[in-house]
C-alpha cells in the first residue's frame, strides 16, 4: 500500500500505514476518538465500545478495525456520541461510582469521559451492587465498586508483570474482577505497588495506599484539561 492511503474521518482525510487501525491512524494524525479499554501499550481489546465509529452504516470499534483506503468513518456526530453516552450511563449504573468520595476523582478516565461527552444523568436505574473492598495488601487497595471490566490490569499483570494476578470471571451481568489467589485476596499474591498493573487502572479500583490526595482535588489532570486533550499527549492511568 502506498503512503498516500487515506480514509475520511468526519469528512477530513486521515493518512495511514498498512496495518494501522482507525483509532491508531486518527491519533497519529492528531484526531481524538474516545476510548476506555484501549491503551497504546497493549493490543486492542474492543470491549468498551466507546471508540465506535460509523463506517458505511455499521458501528465498528475503531481500536480493532483496520483502516481501509477510501473508507468513510464518522466519529464526532450527535448520534455516535449519544451511543457513547448510553454506554457510559450503563457503566455508571452497573457499579457504584460515587465521585465525591473517590480518591481517583479528577484522575479517572470514566469520569473524564462522561464530562467530555456531556453526560449529565445516569438515565437508567442504579443497580447499587454490594462489592466489598479488598484492603489486605499492605501497599494497594482494591475497590471493586468502580470496575468497568476493561481488563487493562488483567493484561498488564499477565503480559507486562508476568504474574497474572487479576482475571475477569463469569459472564454478562455477572462478570466481575477477581484476584488469582486461593483466598481471593490481593494480600495473598505477589502483587507489588511498582507493578505495571498497579498503575494502569483507568478508574478507581487499584489504588496505591498513602498517596491518594498528594494532588488536591480541583488541580488534577482532568480537572484542568479535558480527556480529549490529555489523551493525545499520553495515556493517563
Amino acid at each position: 500500500m502506498s503512503e498516500t492511503a487515506r480514509f475520511l474521518l468526519d469528512g477530513a482525510p486521515v493518512p495511514f500505514a498498512e496495518g494501522q487501525t482507525i483509532l491508531e491512524a486518527a491519533r497519529a494524525a492528531g484526531r481524538y476518538i474516545p476510548h476506555l479499554c484501549w491503551h497504546p501499550d497493549f493490543p486492542p481489546h474492543g470491549s468498551c465500545k466507546l471508540c465506535i465509529v460509523d463506517v458505511g452504516g455499521r458501528h465498528l470499534s475503531a481500536c480493532a478495525t483496520p483502516a481501509v483506503d477510501g473508507a468513510t468513518a464518522a466519529s464526532d456526530t450527535p448520534e455516535i456520541n449519544a451511543e457513547r453516552r448510553a454506554l457510559l450511563q450503563m457503566l455508571f449504573v452497573e457499579g457504584n461510582h460515587f465521585c465525591p468520595s473517590c480518591e481517583k476523582s479528577g484522575l479517572c478516565q470514566l469520569q473524564a469521559m462522561a464530562s467530555e461527552l456531556g453526560m449529565t444523568t445516569p438515565r437508567f436505574n442504579h443497580f447499587y451492587p454490594d462489592r466489598p473492598v479488598d484492603a489486605s495488601h499492605p501497599d494497594v487497595l482494591l475497590d471493586f465498586n468502580r470496575c468497568i471490566y476493561c481488563e487493562l490490569c488483567v493484561r498488564a499483570s499477565r503480559d507486562k508483570d508476568g504474574k497474572s494476578v487479576f482475571a475477569l470471571t463469569n459472564r454478562g451481568i455477572h462478570k466481575h474482577l477477581v484476584v488469582n489467589a486461593e483466598s481471593g485476596r490481593l494480600g495473598d499474591t505477589d502483587f507489588a505497588a511498582d507493578d505495571v498493573a498497579a498503575g494502569i487502572c483507568p478508574v478507581g479500583v487499584i489504588l496505591r495506599k498513602r498517596v491518594g490526595f498528594a494532588v488536591p482535588i480541583g488541580s488534577r489532570t482532568y480537572d484542568t484539561r479535558p480527556i480529549s486533550a490529555v489523551s493525545m499527549d499520553r495515556e493517563e492511568p
Partner: peptide, 11 residues
C-alpha cells in the same frame, strides 16, 4: 442549558 468540561463535573 448545555454543560461541558470543566463546568460539568461529578465531585
Amino acid at each position: 442549558p448545555r454543560l461541558g468540561h470543566p463546568a460539568l463535573h461529578y465531585d
